[in-house]
Design a binder for these strands. Sequence first.
DNA 1: TATTGTTATACTCTATAACTATA
DNA 2: TATAGTTATAGAGTATAACAATA
Lengths: 152, 152
Amino acid sequence: MPKGRQDQDLGLVDGLFELSFRLYGMLARIAAEHDLSIIQVRLLGILRDREPGMLELARYLELEKSSLSGLVDRASGRGLVERIPSADDARAATVRVTARGRKLSRVVEEAVNEEVLTLVRVLSKSDQERLATLVAEVVLRGTTGSARAPVR
Amino acid sequence: MPKGRQDQDLGLVDGLFELSFRLYGMLARIAAEHDLSIIQVRLLGILRDREPGMLELARYLELEKSSLSGLVDRASGRGLVERIPSADDARAATVRVTARGRKLSRVVEEAVNEEVLTLVRVLSKSDQERLATLVAEVVLRGTTGSARAPVR
DNA sequence: TATTGTTATACTCTATAACTATA
DNA sequence: TATAGTTATAGAGTATAACAATA
């Protein structure tokens, strides 16, 4: 990454990574305050409006199905999700968020949302909008080496 | 996070997180291609221009000192870093990147850099500059719940 | 006593490989 | 045979608590 031409100029790549680490760290910290990990938060987030099977869930989270078993075990052990046996296929089960999981997910989401908004408050309203537009363009139209599944 | 007013409008918070996850995933993937984890890449990055003690390193990485021991063990086992006993304090040691570690770090850095530049190429040059400016402003002037140490 | 660092232990997260049960 | 999922096993990464050696 470019060395930074001046102290005040991070360079685009460095700036983006610094921002990413910051947001990632923020999410990890807020999640931890509720005894959750980032992956657990993502799991609950996905289940907000879906009731996927294990394989589907593994695809969303880009994990092996065996990793999902443990993840769902731990979440379900804490009463955040439950396995629902499939009616038509005795091998299969779907994963459903519980009321408790949904609530916890919402609390985390609100805390995160609030903190990000505080972070970007150093920008004027119009600059915030400009940033949103630029970021959306990169996210929606930019492609990376691996075409990643949406985070939730 | 806001539900997304329209399909094409992610909203600032969602967009920033989507971008963060994307960059984080990209870094993890490229690191893994070189048998490294993100934390190992960060470790090597910090050592690029420093030879800190274990406690100092723990502060940089925001880890417990005991976590550092294992991290440095594994990196040193692979010949990427070495512990240098301190001359004046027999308890202390500093951590130094080896030539091999430096080289590996550089390769990863270049791959990452290139891929990020490819990603933002959907924006015009002037939009890229605008984005860099806005991001730098947020990163340099925005504050989050925990005042994080610089990533490297 | 305080500081630097390691060790013991335990847990989460992840993968690979082998397995079970059903389709 | 193929598919959905779990289990066995192993390793990285992390924390807390206890420890050793030195200051």
